[in-house]
Write a protein that binds this DNA or RNA. Sequence first.
DNA 1: CGGGAGATTGACTGATCTCAACCCGGGTGG
DNA 2: CCACCCGGGTTGAGATCAGTCAATCTCCCG
Lengths: 234, 234
Amino acid sequence: MEQYYASQIYSDCFKDTNSVFRHLSEEEFVMIPMEHGPNSYKRGEIIYSEGNRINGFYYVQKGIIKIYKTGFDGKEQIIRFAKKGDIMGFRSTLSNELACTTTRAIEDSNICFIPGDVVKHFVKTNGKFAMELLQIACKELGEANDYITDIAQKTVRERLAEVLIHLKLEFNLDNENFLQISLTREELANLVGTATESVIRLLSEFKQDKLIELHGRKIKILNEKSLIKIGNLQ
Amino acid sequence: MEQYYASQIYSDCFKDTNSVFRHLSEEEFVMIPMEHGPNSYKRGEIIYSEGNRINGFYYVQKGIIKIYKTGFDGKEQIIRFAKKGDIMGFRSTLSNELACTTTRAIEDSNICFIPGDVVKHFVKTNGKFAMELLQIACKELGEANDYITDIAQKTVRERLAEVLIHLKLEFNLDNENFLQISLTREELANLVGTATESVIRLLSEFKQDKLIELHGRKIKILNEKSLIKIGNLQ
DNA sequence: CGGGAGATTGACTGATCTCAACCCGGGTGG
DNA sequence: CCACCCGGGTTGAGATCAGTCAATCTCCCG
């Protein structure tokens, strides 16, 4: 019964419509061992840290995770977020390297682990799965390249506007136009690549200009068009 | 005879020890059509541009290519270089998107083209090839993440030192300790993510400090250790 | 009520960008 | 043959964006 239950959760987990695992056959599916999770993590808890040897994929079933690198002086740079349906740790797993990022829950989250040898077996024997993974890697790569260009060339003001728009696209707005992700000012700064105080100043500038409204950590988007323009997005 | 010759060049091309294509079987190898190249490009010539629909891999047989994105104000940001044995265009090909970078020869180069459907076929049927490609994508992804963190957190001075060290690692030094790649000051600036004048000033500062020597575009590394320290590299 | 984390504001500093002038070497056309 | 032109390189001066430091505020929690 216990076994069945675990299996059921796993099934829910991997058959989400946007999951990489959706193309697995039943025979492949049963190769995934059930004993790893789903584990739950509270806000603030670390899933794995830079330098850890991880060997497997972490599949996010619920919640939001921030994925960041720690710079020379200890400052965090947020690279991306992972949410329901996303996988983490595939870079290190596939290239047999130590983790180069830390992953930390910013909302209570559920995460399943799939061992590296199972995943590698799928890559070698299931062309569709391999292609799917390649496309995920390519998507991330494209986004990383955009990010590099932006950080190198745009002002902090432009980047903050851009980040707000990206957050809107990735996490959507609720029915009152609030961003459905809540970050501390410091996290926002670590995403934009600037100082916390700069983010605060620019946010209140945007508020003055009626582009956004601030209610604690919740941000309401009032004028998306202007933000797009400020961010030099299409 | 002509056919044999083309095939021979292709064979030389793809069986380089560090090529992604080295794991192809003879049967797979003959599936690559011979009519596309190798083409040669002179310094300054564009292979493909941002927004082009490309559908295939560009394999660099000889030369050095700069791969860059054009920012909002027309300024180039160099993302990476491709040299002998590297492939370009796999991101766009595999994710069926338009090219998001421009590729331009900075040395006279020879490049072979492999159509997208052939590559996709290999991905689906040859697990080793798929894994190889995934590892290439993952390697680039790791480097891109490092780059993001560096640009966001390091000073221009630190980044320039780092870039010099990276160029040394990627292109090596000749027997007089000159970097085996020659870039204009502007290209160096577009790599570091700064203004041309800033690069010039910092280069002459490094020269003053006896870390490097400048002979036109050729840069001689005199004190690698100090550069590593300045760049906050391990 | 005290403590602490996060948020805010102000003042100051400085790294870096921009603008402008000038130099240098190579190629070209009169 | 020489003046000119042009692209790239260099230098200087001034402007400014954004980072740092420090003080204060506001919650929230035990």
